[in-house]
Computed example of a mutant assay.
Amino acid sequence: MIDDEPLPLLVRVPSLGSDSREATRLRRAASAGRWRRLHPGSYVRADEWDALTPRRRHVLMVESALGRTGARHAVSHLSAAALLRTPVLGDWPDRVHVTDPDALGPQSTVALVKHQGPLEDDEVSSLRGVRLTTPARTAADLALGTRSLEEVTVVLDDLLHRELTTKEAVLASLDRRPRARGQAGARRALAFADGRSDSAGESRTRVLLHRLGAPVPVLQRRFELGRGRWDPHVDFWFPDQGCVLEFDGVSKYTQSRWRGSLTPEQVVVKEKLREDAIRRQADVRAFVRCTAWHLGDPRRLRSLLESAGVPCSR
């Protein structure tokens, strides 16, 4: 098992047995939509595949491709991010990414994208028996790529927040490849990253605040709610404007991971009481919430901020 939860069973047929009765049965079942072919000779039940999250689908693809990787290959880039349970923006790749220190150049097959580059022993770790790049090397690889600041920040913030790596470790990985393309952008993204952001939504909001030219907010500010009670934190605090900004993700209300034993209705009531208590603070003059809808268009977030007295210079 290479994920934190059991994955569907992969059924494999040897390449030498591609004309066997079992191989023929699986090909026909895949054509009929009952099974899904991940790689040549590797199949999973279609209903079990459909039930997986996008990240766990890619993890299953990594498991399917392991027989095609060499002894010195390490799962890397977005594929390593999937194994590390790191959120990413956009789609997961349809092929598994590995780094091959012996490759003469980038190579691609039906199952793999092979990245060329040096790979030191201390840049490789093991997760449930799978060789993959360390969190620091994974972060550096993705930061060096052509991904946007928003995409890189989501990855970096998450790895820093969960204390899987540090800025110093990522910087050391970048320093090992001084001539790699994308160094300037990677270092800017690393300087901007902040492990106090504890969700992809907060990271995206932080990037958009930066692009809008909003004042730099205080992250995870706590307020005393009276009788010795402290609010765990608010996402963003603009002290000069007395404004609290919270990113409101749907998962807070729908996923048991976040709401615990509370019903969605109870979470709504709890959030309302918490907001009322924060609004009563003497230095709080505004409390606003943004959602993924606001992040989809900078004009929406700008309008929300300006209505709360937070200026935007861009």
Rank of each mutant, 00 (worst) to 15 (best):
M1V: 12
P6R: 12
P8R: 10
L10H: 02
V13S: 05
V13A: 04
P14E: 14
S20Q: 03
R27I: 03
S31T: 14
A32C: 02
G33P: 05
R34V: 09
W35V: 03
R36Y: 08
P40V: 10
G41Y: 00
V44M: 03
V44S: 03
R45A: 15
E48N: 06
A51C: 10
G67Q: 08
G70H: 06
G70P: 00
L78V: 07
L84C: 02
R85D: 14
T86E: 03
D91V: 12
V96I: 10
V98G: 06
D102S: 12
G105W: 03
S108Y: 00
T109N: 03
V110G: 14
K114M: 12
Q116C: 10
Q116T: 13
L119E: 09
E120V: 08
D121P: 00
E123A: 13
V124C: 10
V130Y: 03
A136R: 02
A143R: 00
R147S: 11
S148W: 02
E150A: 12
L160R: 04
R162T: 14
L164H: 09
T166Y: 00
L171Q: 15
R179M: 01
R179I: 00
A184Y: 08
R188L: 15
A189V: 03
D194H: 07
R196P: 07
A200P: 07
S203H: 10
S203T: 06
T205H: 00
R206C: 02
G213P: 13
G213K: 12
P215I: 10
P217Q: 09
V218F: 04
L225Y: 10
R229Q: 13
P239Y: 05
G242L: 01
G242N: 04
L245Y: 09
L245D: 07
F247H: 09
V250F: 00
V250N: 07
S256M: 00
S256E: 13
S256N: 01
Q266I: 01
Q266D: 13
D276H: 11
D276R: 11
I278E: 05
R279W: 06
V284G: 10
A286M: 04
R289T: 01
A292I: 05
G296D: 13
R299L: 12
L301E: 01
L304H: 03
L305R: 07
S307T: 14
P311G: 11
C312N: 08
R314A: 14
